[in-house]
Structure formats: structure tokens, C-alpha cells
Write a protein that binds this DNA or RNA. Structure first.
Lengths: 149, 149
DNA sequence: CTGATATCAGCATAACTGACATCG
DNA sequence: CCGATGTCAGTTATGCTGATATCA
């Protein structure tokens, strides 16, 4: 039934950097599939979640908080605005900036995506028990902390 | 001194799929840098390591073992052959196949890349103690086991 | 003038797909 | 005829860079 892949070299099985890449590919694929089914992308979620927690913000601020490049953020905001999930309006206090704010519809969407992502994460983490999932979260948090672009 | 990035939304900090992506980006970057300094790529290592452990093989077999697509393997083998690290010769027993075999020079190169990768992995895993590194390896092994393309 | 902002154009890499001639 | 193999061409996504006009 399954492909029954031949064995992988021990060197490769022991390479944690490689395992990380493979795991990330699986994870991303699952997440993108799940979000794609409802017409969303990872970056959409990151922006909505950030707006919900910190309130209206400039695109530069959103870029810093989400680690999405400014140049990429432009399109993300445009997409979200086209769906009325966020509002983009000029900042009267600083005419260089836009103020991006979450709409009611955007909040609903965020809650919907919360569920979608919980489902995708559950699929991906299925082989791990609760304790192992906690461990993984902690280890990854350490590895990603204090590491800028 | 440091950028002193503003806080990230809790939703994002808790998303293990996101942490995994970020960690993988850091890890891949470090590995690619290190390999790049000696003119190699991840795929080169995967092929050399597989040949060393299992002996001469067809490209299809190498593809299955390394998870490198057949179409991409073609160039990888060409690059390795150009450096005399592997030999590509037709298989008389099955004229569709090539037999790829490791050269002496290829074995030396593998040992060199072993060191390079140990260094890169060490850099990346620096924030973790020995026990945590073991944990991470085990968790990732579980998550990548039995998951085909 | 310096520096930040939003925007646009584009690059490099990597994962991935499809097609095809050759051969078992 | 069916299926596997090596090869080629090409797509898509994404992380990232550089340049520019506007404005504090």
C-alpha cells in the first residue's frame, strides 16, 4: 500500500538540521493546505493576530512584529483589505504611514483561522503525546528566541 | 545594540508550526552558509552519504533514499561527477539505468563535509544543552518517520 | 540633511510537476 | 501494452534585496 521507501543513510537520519527541514516542509504543507481550503495564507493569520493583540498599527510596526518583510506586507494588507478584514487608512499624525486596523469581519476571520490552524497542527503533531508537544514547543521557542533576521 | 524587536503576538509565539518554520529557516541558512564556504550543497552531502553507506546505486534508488526528486538529482550527480566525487556509468544489466559510485575523492569529501556540518549544527543548537539536543532529535525523528513525499 | 515609510520591481533558491524518449 | 528510468523544461512560493517617492 504505502511506498515502502528504502532505508535512509544513518548520517542523514542523525542530522538534526535535516530532520528540521523535513519536518518543516511537512508542517508547512499541511498548514498551507488547511488555510488554502478557506482561501487564506499564513501571513494573513499573522497580521490578523497581531492587530488583534496590539491594536491598529503601521505597516512598519506590523513588519517588525510578524517578521514579514515590508515589501511583502504591502500585498498582504491589500489582500486583507479587499476582503474587508482590515482597513488601511492614512495616518493624519504622520503622513508617511498607513494605519491598519482590524474590522469586525477580520476578528471573525481570525477566530475561524484559529480553528483551522488548530486542526492542521493537530494533524501534524499527531504522532506526539501531550508532553512531547510541550517539549517541542519549548525547544523551538529557545531556538527561535533572540534571533533576528 | 541589537534590533530590540517589538513583541510578537502570543498566538504566533504558541504556534508550533510557525516556530518550526522559523527554526528551519535559521538552520538551513546556517547550513547553506557553511557548505557554501567549501563549495558544496546539502544535496551533495545527502548523495555522498547514501553512496557511502549503501554502495553504488541507480539515480532512482538515490532519489528514494535521499528524497531528492529525480529531476533535481540529475544536476546534482552531474555536479558531483564534474568534481570527480562520484562516477556515473551506464548499467550493462539494465540499460535504462546509470550506476553511480563513490570515488576515493568522494569519500574524502564526505568526511570533510561531516566536519563542516557538525560545525553548523553546533552553531545552530548552541542554545540547547546536550539533553535538549537529544530530545529535539528524537521528536523530529518521530515527526518525520513514515511520512512519504 | 538624515532617516523612516510605503511601494514596486526583481532575484535566488527550492520544492515540485509534466512530458518524453528509451528500455525491461 | 505497461511501467520504470533518466532527462529537460517549466511553475510556484518565499525569503530577501535594491531603488524610489514621500514625508518627519
Amino acid at each position: 500500500m504505502t511506498a515502502d521507501n528504502p532505508a535512509t543513510a544513518v548520517r542523514l537520519l542523525r542530522l538534526r538540521t535535516r530532520l528540521l527541514s523535513l519536518a518543516s516542509i511537512h508542517s508547512d504543507r499541511r498548514v498551507n493546505e488547511a488555510l488554502g481550503e478557506v482561501g487564506a495564507r499564513k501571513w494573513h493569520y499573522a497580521v490578523l493576530a497581531t492587530l488583534e493583540e496590539f491594536g491598529p498599527a503601521s505597516q512598519a510596526d506590523l513588519s517588525d512584529r510578524t517578521r514579514i518583510y515590508r515589501s511583502d506586507l504591502v500585498n498582504v494588507i491589500t489582500e486583507l483589505a479587499a476582503q474587508d478584514l482590515v482597513e488601511r487608512s492614512p495616518n493624519p499624525a504622520d503622513r508617511r504611514q498607513n494605519v491598519i486596523s482590524l474590522t469586525g469581519k477580520g476578528t471573525d476571520r481570525l477566530l475561524e483561522l484559529d480553528k483551522v490552524l488548530r486542526g492542521a497542527e493537530e494533524d501534524f503533531l499527531a504522532p506526539l503525546d501531550a508532553g512531547q508537544r510541550e517539549q517541542l514547543g519549548e525547544l523551538l521557542a529557545i531556538l527561535t528566541r533572540d534571533r533576528g533576521h
